[in-house]
Design a protein around this nucleic acid. Structure first.
Lengths: 413, 413
DNA sequence: CCTACTTTGTTAAATTTTTTATTATCTATA
DNA sequence: TATAGATAATAAAAAATTTAACAAAGTAGG
């Protein structure tokens, strides 16, 4: 075989290619993609439904469906109940058609996950120890850990066609650049990792990925304008408008933690004063906790002989869940401060729903109720009556799921 | 003629109907709409361009173009310069194909305008005296004034197929409801006016309409993520994302004036404290002016023997433009406070451009520079470096233009 | 359980659209 | 100012899609 003139192997996944084709070939590919997309959004579909959605005739739709079945991308899922006449066949995605890998990089660990074509997580590995630092060594370790996960369990045999990675900080999803971490070369980090691992790679900001994960697999209903608040040590938001992730000009949207709405003298790690994060974040919680302990307050969060400076956000969260008074009070204070920030968002966005996610959201109503109350006090009632405030349903899993979906939907939609 | 079975008169504007058709008729109509839309966005187009954009063959595109010429919607605009071969014909919209009426309702006057199919304003009437009050009489007068404008000049003979109306306050563009003004019945205000005037009517919030007007006719470039700040007595924003107006769940987006970011004891007319509007708006400017005068400061804005309580925002703006020291200082203060609000927006949206519009923006750099400086101080530099801050190019005209475009684009796009 | 009425899916004719070949314009260069 | 190379538009041939008629599969009611 002479390498020079070798054509790319034709696979069943050809419809997801961007290769330049035109005319009827192009139209058919577009329609097939649209069918996959419709089934993805609506669940199993009938030929009649699809024919309407595509604006194509029933015979045409039938032949496209048959091709997609040949390709192994969709399959017959049996008959629908009668609506007064002959029962219609339903068609759904084939789970094993392809897979996607999600990598959620946190400050002190990584979560891995494998997702199939139908958005089901088929294999997961959580809390793999890792320390996120802005060094080449940290990046090398990350790549090694990904490779190692790829050799495990069902990953070995799955056809993985996309890799999604969540990172904190400024991420440009479109170009694949990460500016806050691993920005050692001009070449996009996504491209560097693609070359190392051999799978097309997509970067996303952690809050945006979590927002997307939460939204796609939610039971919230059919909301399309969603703000996801990621409450970790820092506070970021993921913005979904019209069901799509909003990036901003360079992918820097959602720096909610650094909006200047408090009048204090606390210097945020971004270098400014008065940031929301100085009063409503995991960092703020830890700082307030230390101050109170030094003032003489007591807390069960502080284990015997433990120096107060070793306390972590998670210690306080767990203490609160175990009814520790001080922790609950401080979290409530954080919630109230957060509510002021939420009031800003609600007035500007008039969203359908605000979802509290990230580590701090695990405290449930301890943080939600004070936030809701402050939100009501500080925003226009006509507008805030319109908005639900809920706790994330996916919790920490939102990250991996979002990472998988980022890769998946960038490729197939 | 028996009225019972009479079909709607078929006109050249049939492609803008929503009437249910299917199959090839539907496809052709969609494609024709798409052609109009492409020419609308890109300016005059050639058959080859359109054929690519539509995903249709050249002969097909040619036949659609010919039909549109028959319909009187587009016309041959001559030949393009050669790109190395035979010169291509360009096609553009026919200006007189149809017209749209825009009504910009301000607090103390109304601006009217007539726009043709090519987005040109063909007739305008500004500052028609009117007092916006939430009474049936005020609404009646508004309707009378619209009818009267329709009898004037070129309006008499133009085929007007849409009417756009701007109002302040909470507007739901989709349902046609206005909640802050003229909400006397359950029936949408847009529908009531449609019945009165006989032209399909579309309501829009003033800031959003101005944003849309500024964006569509701008020379700003090809930006798609734009925030338009409407600085009048109140302060609202119009949000354009991906080139489209963002409404929020119920159309209440953009209540920028009421985000709680100041710690003061001034009660906003919305009933809350600390709203941006209490420190950065026309109202705030007037209040600050009165306070300073009562403290003994002097200003040329205050004409001989004029009681200070009669001062208006426009007096102060004009004085500033005539180098009045106090007015300039106060406007600069307003600008600085505004900058704090802009910092919030920039951190959240990472927009391509912020446009300052509305009455206060006429003070140009007097308000822009302090705002820019505060913005830089208070938002992440990586993000704010990304954002331009400009003064509106259309000024007060943005309103009527936006109203016309709201009607126009709701119908034809 | 037969008949009338629905809805789904298939087939074949009719129509539409794309392809391919050809002609028409235009530039650049010898 | 001819001629080769390039792009645009049209015409005829080929292919694809829709339409419309019909068969299949179901419900509901006497």
């Amino acid at each position: 075989m002479h390498g020079t003139n070798m054509k790319r192997k034709k696979t069943k996944l050809d419809i997801f290619n961007d290769a330049a084709v035109s005319g009827v070939v192009f139209k058919n590919r577009s329609l097939k993609k649209l069918i996959v997309s419709q089934i993805n959004h609506l669940g199993n579909c009938t030929i009649t439904d699809l024919s309407k959605d595509l604006g194509a005739s029933v015979p045409k739709t039938t032949s496209l469906i048959n091709e997609l079945i040949q390709d192994g991308l969709i399959r017959d899922e049996g008959k629908l109940d009668s609506t007064g006449g002959r029962r219609a066949s339903m068609f759904g995605l084939v789970p094993d058609a392809c897979h996607f890998l999600g990598v959620d990089v946190k400050k002190f660990h990584i979560n891995f996950g494998l997702m199939d074509f139908t958005k089901k997580m088929t294999y997961q590995k959580e809390k793999v120890p890792f320390r996120l630092e802005n060094t080449p060594e940290s990046l090398e370790l990350l790549i090694r850990l990904i490779k190692s996960f790829l050799g495990e369990g069902p990953c070995k045999n799955a056809q993985i066609i996309g890799l999604g990675i969540n990172l904190t900080g400024r991420i440009n999803h479109k170009t694949g650049h990460s500016f806050s971490f691993f920005h050692f070369k001009e070449e996009p980090l996504a491209e560097i990792i693609h070359k190392e691992i051999g799978i097309p790679t997509f970067l996303e900001n952690d809050s945006r990925a979590m927002a997307y994960g939460e939204f796609q697999l939610n039971e919230h209903g059919k909301e399309n304008n969603i703000l996801f608040i990621n409450m970790d040590y820092g506070t970021g938001i993921g913005i979904l408008l019209d069901g799509k992730v909003y990036y901003g000009k360079s992918g820097f949207s959602g720096e909610f933690g650094h909006i200047p709405i408090f009048e204090n003298e606390i210097i945020c790690h971004c270098g400014k004063k008065g940031c929301l994060e100085t009063e409503a974040s995991g960092h703020a919680l830890v700082r307030k906790f230390k101050t109170q302990i030094k003032k003489g307050y007591t807390s069960t969060a502080l284990k015997k002989n433990m120096p107060v400076d070793d306390i972590t956000m998670n210690d306080i969260i767990n203490a609160a869940l175990n009814e520790d008074q001080l922790s609950i009070e401080l979290i409530s204070e954080i919630g109230e401060n957060l509510g002021k920030g939420l009031a800003v968002l609600v007035n500007i966005f008039n969203p359908e729903i605000l979802v509290l996610g990230g580590a701090l959201s695990e405290t449930g109503d301890y943080i939600r109720l004070p936030a809701r109350s402050a939100l009501n006090k500080l925003s226009l009632s006509l507008v805030n009556n319109d908005t639900k405030l809920k706790i994330s349903q996916l919790g920490e899993k939102a990250g991996v799921i979002g990472a998988c979906l980022t890769a998946r939907d960038t490729i197939i939609l």
